[in-house]
Every structure is written in structure tokens, then in C-alpha cells.
Design a protein around this nucleic acid. Structure first.
Lengths: 204, 204
DNA sequence: CGTCTATTTGAATGTACTCAAAAGCGGTGG
DNA sequence: CCACCGCTTTTGAGTACATTCAAATAGACG
């Protein structure tokens, strides 16, 4: 029999992006760090695997410890719209469905082999009750997410595609390097054909 | 000389939408209610007055006790894009500028005579420090705002204008009743001419 | 009542999509 | 290592969506 690698009791907390991320906004004792981690389950997951399926319950709020994911909606005609990408050190889920515990409106799939820290909806509540100081952490998180999405709405309704594309490249260079142009097109809300045209129109 | 109406020391807290709104998510003692109110300044304001000016500092986070407002961005060509409307019982500001204390990217104007409760940026921090339980309130507020904006992005990039228009009417009937069609067009990101056409195309 | 703005209508133009096909690229199996 | 396969990207023609500009009509407000 081979030895089964056991959970390492002496992990260096600094190596966990999750804890570092939380501690950007609230300080935690090492006891509190352990408490936080105890609410999460660590999950290695392979490229192109689905974490959430549109139409199924959405139970998890995911922190990306390693790797990258894409959240997208598929409409009745089968057209995909990408809602967000997440790389290392980001949170991702179908927040609407997660909060209200309704069926997911989005699917979530990995872009590469990844490592997630998953938080169940009930445990999310329980964690906030046990460590109320985390309310501040999540308040700041959602506040920023709100500002970002609002800016994205403004971009979508007020800027021409070329500007939006360049802005995306500029704002999220790490993401741009990992995803296909088709996925960027679906994030910007245009067809891949049109994005290709706009990109290449200057080089005649 | 006419008598100057003095602040009423015995106001019925239930009459304040602000306190009722907070208490939807966290319970407050009557002392805490007074504390909350002490951080705000009450401001009556007339129709079409500006609360925030694009390009100027953004100092206030506004709760609409009465009336309604519109937040919009004006681009270099002078085209306006409406970011949000707020009616009674809503919060509104240029959140990005408010948070980072940068110059406003949006203007905020009333649609009618209104009554605002204004919270200064520094007082926002101080209030959260004095009453940490409000972190939860704002966490929930921003969490929902995030979900709404994300849904709006999805609508904007995936649905035809007619559907988006009908959805707007259906989702915000109170707002739809108060604003012009031109303002709705600028919220949806199209010209008023085109919105008019789409609305009337079925009645040939 | 008069003025100012919003709404509607229409023609011409530009933006973005569909469908189809060719070219490029990456991964997989032989 | 190479050849094939599937998917992405590009290109192009034709069509639909959305804009600009202009002018007429309708409403709102003082």
C-alpha cells in the first residue's frame, strides 16, 4: 500500500492566497485563520470541468487559489455570454443564485487545471456569524465588485467596441493572455467574427 | 419674525425610511438609531438640482428619503449615458469616486423635489467603526447591488433592445412612470429615436 | 399663451450579425 | 515525429440593427 498524503497540520498560512486576501482588509489571529479555513473545502479541479451548471442549484462561492475560470450564460438560441473571468486570488460564483439559493443562471468552468477553496451557502452565513469582522471584508469585496460592474455597464452602453476591447486588454492583461478571442468576444457581447474584423481593420 | 421650525426631538423613528431600511437587515436600539442619524445630514433639494458634478470631488453617499434622482455620465462628444435611477428608499452616489475619493465620473441630479440623507465619506468610515453591525447592512446592500449590475451587464450584451426595454418597465415600474423616454434610452444605451421606433414598430 | 423640450417619422449611413468557407493552430493518436 | 482532427480565427457577401441629421408634431412648464 502506498502512503496516503495526509493533511499538513503545519502549513505556512502565508502560502494561502485566501488568507492573504482576507488580511488585506481585516487582520486575523492565527486561530481565526484556522477558523476561516475550516469553513472551506479545498478542491483541485481539472481543465474544462464544470463547477456550476446553469439550471442546477448553485451551492458554492469559490475562491481561486490557483488557475482560472469563466462564468457564462447560455440563452435559448445557444448563444453564450461571458459574465466574468476569474484568475488567482479572485472570487467567483453565480452570486444571484448563491444568495437566494435559486437555480443557477450561469455555468462556471475552469480554463485550466485549478485549485479552488469552496464555501457552501450555509457555511457562508455561519462563518459571518462566527467571525463578524469578516462582514467588513465581504462588504469591501462587494462594494468593489459593484463599482467594477457599474463601470462595465457604462463601457458597454457608451463606448465603441474597439475602445472596449483595448480597455479589456489593458485592464485584465493576465486574463487576456489565458482566454481565446471567442471568449473575449462573448464577454464584450459581440460575435467572434466582428471582433476579429475590428482588431484587424487598422492593418490594411 | 416668523418662527423657525426647530428639529423635532421626538420624531417617530418608523417614519424615517432610512432607519426602516437599515432595520430590514440589522436590528437597532433606539440609541443606535439616533447614532446612525447623527452621522447624516438631512437635505431638501429641488427638482433638477445637481448633487454631484462630473469632474468635481464626490463627497456624499445619498439615501433618498423622498423623491428621485438620476446618475449619468457625459462623454467627450456630449452624449449622456444614464448609470442608474434612484427612487425613495434607495441609495445613490458615484460609488467609485466616493470610495477612492477621486473626481466624480458621474453627475447626479434630482428628477423632482426631494429629501436626501447625506453621508460624508469620512463619516461613512467613522459610522462603520462606531457601529460595526452596520458592516453587515452595507455588505448585503452592495452584494445585491453587485448582482443587479451583473444582471444588467448580461441583459446589455445578450438581449435585443425590445426585450431590455420591456424588462426595464417590468422591473422598475415606479421609475418608468417618473422618467422621460429619452432618459430610458440613455439608460439602455440607445438613441431616443431608435427606442421610439422599437416601441411603435408593432402598431403599424 | 408661447416657448422649450420630448417624441415621432423618415432618409441616408454606419455598425454589427448571419452564413459560409478558407486558413491557422493545438492536441492526440498512430 | 508526423498526420489528422477539431476548434479558433479570418475573410467576404448579404442582411438586419442602430445611428445621424433633419423636420414635423406633441407635451410640459412657466
Amino acid at each position: 500500500m502506498t502512503a496516503i498524503p495526509s493533511h499538513n497540520e503545519h502549513e505556512i498560512p502565508e502560502r494561502k492566497l485566501l488568507l492573504k486576501n482576507v488580511q488585506k482588509h481585516v487582520s486575523l489571529t492565527s486561530d481565526e485563520c484556522e477558523t476561516v479555513l475550516s469553513y472551506f473545502s479545498e478542491r483541485p479541479i481539472r481543465r474544462k470541468d464544470k463547477v456550476i451548471l446553469q439550471g442546477k442549484p448553485c451551492r458554492k462561492f469559490c475562491f481561486v487559489e490557483k488557475g482560472s475560470l469563466r462564468a457564462y450564460h447560455t440563452n435559448v438560441e445557444g448563444k453564450e455570454s461571458t459574465i466574468m473571468f476569474a484568475v488567482e486570488d479572485w472570487w467567483i460564483t453565480d452570486m444571484g443564485a448563491f444568495l437566494n439559493q435559486t437555480l443557477a443562471n450561469l455555468s462556471l468552468e475552469t480554463l485550466e487545471d485549478s485549485l479552488l477553496f469552496e464555501l457552501e451557502a450555509l457555511k457562508f452565513q455561519a462563518l459571518l456569524n462566527e467571525l463578524p469582522k469578516l462582514e467588513r471584508y465581504f462588504r469591501i469585496l462587494f462594494q468593489r465588485a459593484y463599482v467594477r460592474e457599474q463601470q462595465r455597464v457604462l463601457d458597454a452602453i457608451s463606448m465603441p467596441l474597439e475602445d472596449r476591447y483595448l480597455r479589456f486588454l489593458n485592464k485584465y492583461p493576465k486574463i487576456a493572455a489565458k482566454v481565446t478571442q471567442k471568449q473575449i468576444a462573448s464577454y464584450l457581447g459581440v460575435t467572434p467574427e466582428f471582433l476579429s474584423m475590428v482588431k484587424n481593420k487598422n492593418s490594411s
